[in-house]
Design a protein around this nucleic acid. Structure first.
Length: 639
RNA sequence: GCUGGGGUAGCUCAGGGGUAGAGCAAUUCAUUGGUAAUGAAUAGGUCGGAGGUUCAAUUCCUCUCCUCAGCACCA
């Protein structure tokens, strides 16, 4: 006797082992036809898998969110089947469902081209229509090994080899395609339906290691119906319009060109944003008792050798030849320079903590494939600082930093940031006790700032653990912005010390920290966040004054004079164009406030104000308008 | 760096072995108008760069640079 408990707590009893499909069928034939998989005691199972003990079972249909993952995984298998049918010289490797879709990595001498993708997609639709049964099989590990060896599938052999000898593995068979897979899957290829699309073709590496063979990855996405699929595709299209590279060009913020690959040409409008942000950060750092410094751009090789950068980072450093055949390097980081300033003169424990800040312009020779607009560049400016402190000050400094960071992110409108915590790696400097202290300081800081985090186990730097503060771009890619790293190593390598209460020489700890990360990346993220419609305090042009007829030009000049006096960034548009044309053009240029001035306004010393994104207009007295505007344009920390 | 796309007017893009195309922008003229495109005319190009094949290359081939997507990288 076998008792099956259903979600509504009703029970069914069976004399023999039963499948979820039978159970569904006993409830209603409709449910059986709509079922994809089931939960059996909280685990996802195939419908055809035999349940042999008393169990809690629920049947999943399209209404359950989990199904999306299942059909995307189905889609990956169906794609692999299609690829093997069309290109039998291919080896399959792995193919998971991922956020928003799925991919499969293939190994094949010849590259897939874009037309291949179309053929594969077509074949997938055929396989769906074939309604092939998808069946689960349990094999011993050695059977699996023999099978893959016989077929010369070296990648699968490697996967199976990693499995302990006594264990069994599961296979899924559909048509002539068999794949090693944990499952579960829907009962038939037909269940996928036709709401899928292959999206991208890209290279990847076996097991994510660039020393391994290159694989070809085909990405796709699948949904439960065409409407969801189309919504998704439209959403991606919309998101692409927020791309900072596109907007940067449209709004005349910056440009990039071949002769300076990976370095930004800031135009006047973009540079205004940059300067406003820098000024804001200076105010915040002053209040937080940082002192700002500036260190050399080009430094002799010997210092980089002492700091360890030469050994670990040489390939990424730009070199310059000096006199006497000296090798110089453009600084990729600011820390060694800051230690040199720290080392000038003896430091006492009473001097600590020392918080040394720099808007440090760094050069790194990033691999060409890593470059991305102004988000990943070869020359960038960090809002960098190093806090030299005693062990006993680490925690409070970390807490203060996280609070400051959060305050600043809020001012820029980022309320939900994500934190990654990278703890001790296998090979590291410093003893476990010191690591304990540093890791717990970071954790205390996260908690004090009321932040959630995800753990990156073993991903810390060899010199200490770190926090990474991550923001997301328009199409969902993660970018590390802020960071906080505890460093036990550099101070000793570069000989930084202080005298403690007992007159003994001690080594300070160094906290590397940045809040925005790089000004370039930060502005890129901001542009995408706002689709180019920057908040008033950052808008390159805050107001544009538009005429309707040219008889009011003198009145407009007089308003402009007043705006200039109070530091409102403005433009005037006296062109011989219709007002509708001007409104449209300035709206497209994302200018936050358009002021229209005609004869009516001039007569009473008024202005007609129109805010971006609104069709309303507000008639205000000129003085009243300017007074209000000055307040609105204040940076968030001065409001 | 790796795999696959792409580079044509200021911008967005079409084309394709035989004098290079559109829309928008620009310039000129007319229009002085009331809240997201007034009309007409004109001008605009080493078809990313270097080699090669050809009577002829922007088009085909080779190399190279840049760029896009993903992978790897981001100390």
């Amino acid at each position: 006797m076998l008792i099956i408990t259903l979600p509504d707590n009703s029970k069914k009893s069976y004399k023999k082992p039963v499948t979820s499909f039978q159970i569904a069928n006993d409830i209603s034939t409709k449910l059986a036809s709509e079922a994809f998989v089931s939960y059996v005691n909280g685990e996802l199972w195939d419908l055809a898998r035999l349940i042999e003990t008393d169990s809690i079972v629920s049947i999943l249909t399209k209404k359950n969110e989990e199904i999306l993952k299942i059909i995307r995984h189905d889609a990956a298998h169906i794609m692999a089947e299609a690829v093997l049918e069309l290109y039998p010289d291919t080896q399959v490797t792995i193919g998971p469902a991922i956020e928003n879709g799925f991919y499969y990595d293939f190994y094949r001498e010849k590259s897939f081209l874009m037309n291949d993708i179309e053929l594969i997609e077509k074949r997938m639709h055929e396989i769906v229509d074939r309604d092939e049964k998808i069946e689960r099989e349990v094999w011993t590990r050695n059977e699996a090994l023999d099978f893959f060896k016989k077929n010369n599938e070296i990648f699968k052999v490697e996967l199976v080899n990693a499995i302990p000898e006594e264990e069994t593995v599961t296979f899924y068979r559909q048509g002539n395609f068999v794949d090693l897979c944990r499952g579960p899957h829907a009962p038939s290829t037909k269940k996928l339906g036709h709401s899928f699309k292959l999206t991208k073709l890209a290279g990847s590496y076996w097991r994510g290691d660039s020393n391994n063979p290159v694989l070809q990855r085909i990405y796709g996405t699948a949904f439960l119906n065409d409407k969801d699929l189309n919504n998704y595709l439209v959403m991606i299209e919309e998101a692409e319009k927020r791309d900072h590279r596109k907007i940067g060009k449209q709004l005349d913020f910056f440009h990039l060109q071949e002769e300076a690959t990976g370095s930004v040409f800031w135009h006047q409008k973009g540079w205004v944003i940059y300067l406003e942000i820098e000024a804001y950060m200076r105010r915040k750092l002053n209040i937080s008792q940082y002192s700002e410094v500036k260190t050399p751009q080009v430094i002799d090789r010997s210092l980089w050798e002492k700091s360890g950068h030469w050994e670990k980072f040489k390939e990424h450093m730009f070199m310059a030849k000096g006199d006497d055949d000296k090798t110089l390097a453009l600084k990729p980081m600011n820390c060694p320079g800051h230690v040199q300033i720290y080392k000038q003169g003896l430091k006492s424990y009473k001097d600590l903590p020392i918080r040394m800040a720099e808007f440090g312009s760094c050069h790194r020779n990033e691999p060409s494939g890593a470059l991305h607009g102004i988000m990943r560049v070869r020359q960038f400016t960090q809002d960098d600082a190093h806090i030299f402190c005693m062990d006993s000050q680490i925690t409070s400094e970390c807490v203060q930093f996280c609070e400051l960071l959060q305050e600043i992110y809020k001012d820029f409108g980022f309320n939900d940031l994500r934190v990654k915590f990278s703890d001790r790696p296998a090979t590291r400097a410093g003893d476990d006790q010191t690591w304990d202290k540093a890791e717990s300081a970071l954790l205390v800081a996260i908690k004090a700032a009321n932040l959630d985090y995800t753990l990156n186990p073993g991903e810390g730097a060899f010199y200490g653990p770190k926090l990474e503060f991550v923001l997301t771009d328009a199409i969902g890619r993660d970018w590390q912005c802020g960071t906080l790293q505890v460093d036990f190593v550099l101070p000793s390598r570069l000989g930084a010390s202080y005298i403690d209460q007992d007159g003994q020489k001690q080594q300070p700890v160094m906290l590397h920290r940045a809040i925005l990360g790089s000004l370039e990346r930060w502005i890129g993220i901001l542009i995408e966040q706002h689709s180019g419609r920057m908040p008033l305090w950052l808008a390159p042009v805050q107001v544009v004054l538009c005429s309707i007829v040219d008889s009011t030009n003198n009145y407009i000049y007089s308003i402009q004079k007043e705006l200039n006096k109070v530091g409102i960034r403005n433009e005037i548009d006296l062109r011989n164009e219709k007002i509708g044309y001007k409104i449209r053009e300035h709206s497209n240029k994302a200018i936050p406030i358009i002021v229209v001035i005609g004869k009516k306004e001039e007569e009473k010393s008024n202005v007609a104000v129109r805010y971006l994104g609104s069709n309303n207009q507000e008639i205000l007295g000129m003085n009243q308008f300017i007074e209000g505007l000055v307040k609105k344009c204040l940076p968030p920390d001065l409001k």
